[in-house]
């Protein structure tokens, strides 16, 4: 499926992945993230249930300590 991931078109060789599956597929290793699908916030405990479909706009922000 084709999606927009962090403002960049991405071709994913799978259909209907959950947000967590997409994160593993992309090998995103940061422990803490903020995620949105089609501009809707997807909290940590919702990432197994929210499915990313063809054409969806996914935004993933990596959080690291320091400040």
């Amino acid at each position: 499926m084709n999606i927009i991931l962090n403002n960049t078109p991405e071709s994913i060789e799978a259909e209907g992945l959950s947000v967590n599956e997409l994160i593993r597929y992309k090998n995103f290793t940061f422990r803490l993230l903020v995620t949105k699908v089609n501009d809707q916030l997807v909290r940590t405990d919702e990432r197994d249930n929210v499915i990313v479909n063809e054409g969806d706009n996914v935004q993933i922000l990596h959080l690291i300590s320091g400040g």
Partner: peptide
């Protein structure tokens, strides 16, 4: 904030409570 956990909490809370209210984060310094 200094911790990633606190940054996540604030971002998720602000986005949920007040769509459109600007939140300026500091990440990686």
């Amino acid at each position: 904030f200094d911790t990633a956990e606190a940054k996540q909490m604030l971002a998720e809370t602000v986005i949920s409570l007040w769509p459109g209210k600007p939140l300026i984060m500091g990440i990686g310094m």
